[in-house]
Write a protein that binds this DNA or RNA. Structure first.
Length: 257
DNA sequence: ATGGTTGCCTCGCAA
């Protein structure tokens, strides 16, 4: 069994005690982290390695930044999403571990939709689709996990009307997300829990956590060869209720060995 | 009701 988790930690430095406590309790084999908000030298590698994890990361000052932690070594890192060589935003890291190709994804937020940020988001999603297509041709198991900044459907949102004009829920965002799935990928949580209302993000503002005003935007997409091994997928709400929590909580899936 | 929360490390921006 391989336990793969994804978690947007909203600053690895601010979140370090929470992250270390959760790794110790949940014991995931592979962890995809997003929004590190630091460069390589600021990454708390000693503390992570002390828990038995190898790691790879791509950093950026103050914004973005993604990492992969694994109980086994990481091979063949790809530190950027192909298709825009001038793009300096640290939002993509792909490695091989446990014999599985995994990517940690921090998809652009895209707000406000009338700014240049929205076309950047859609173009980034098109690049991701092209990358997924190339990976599918390998016919090997892979998992693309992270903060997709997309609410796939109305049932993934406490109040769809409140999000109607948001870049996370606009039709073009959802269309592009479903185009990705339609390549033949399996969205692990929804595949195992059709119709279940569950969220992975609650805004810091307006007591959203206490009111359960959440959205489900953190996803793990599996290739057919990985989906055949999928035995469980869950959202672990407990870290969101801790002091100094990230606004996101981990999503975990288990693949048979 | 144009509010409110968090993190970065600037005096605003991004989420």
């Amino acid at each position: 069994m391989v336990k793969i988790a994804t978690w947007n930690v909203n600053s690895i430095k601010a979140r370090l005690p929470n992250v270390l406590a959760w790794l110790t309790a949940a014991e995931p084999d592979v962890v995809l982290l997003q929004e590190l908000k630091c460069q390589k030298e600021g990454f708390p590698r000693l503390e992570i390695e002390a828990l038995g994890y190898h790691y790879a990361m791509v950093g950026q000052k103050s914004y973005n930044g993604v990492a992969v932690l694994s109980k086994q070594p990481l091979e063949d890192p790809l530190a950027r999403l192909p298709g825009a060589e001038a793009d300096e935003q640290a939002r993509y890291l792909e490695v091989t571990t446990f014999g599985i190709r995994v990517a940690s994804i921090y998809l652009p937020n895209g707000n406000p939709p009338d700014s240049e940020k929205y076309p950047y988001k859609l173009a980034w999603m098109e690049r991701l689709r092209a990358r997924a297509q190339a990976l599918l041709a390998s016919e090997r198991p892979f998992a693309l996990g992270g903060d997709y900044n997309v609410i796939p459907a109305a049932e993934d949102c406490y109040d769809p009307a409140a999000w109607a004009d948001d870049a996370l829920f606009l039709p073009d965002s959802r269309r592009q997300f479903h185009a990705l799935l339609n390549l033949g990928l399996t969205e692990a949580f929804r595949a195992l829990h059709p119709g279940l209302r569950a969220y992975s993000y609650w805004d810091y503002q307006g007591a959203a956590w206490q009111a359960d005003h959440g959205i489900r935007i953190d996803h793990v997409l599996l290739s057919p060869q990985a989906a055949d091994r999928l035995v469980a997928c869950a959202i672990d709400k407990s870290p969101r209720g801790e002091p100094k929590a990230s606004d996101h909580t981990p999503v975990i899936c288990e693949l048979a060995a």
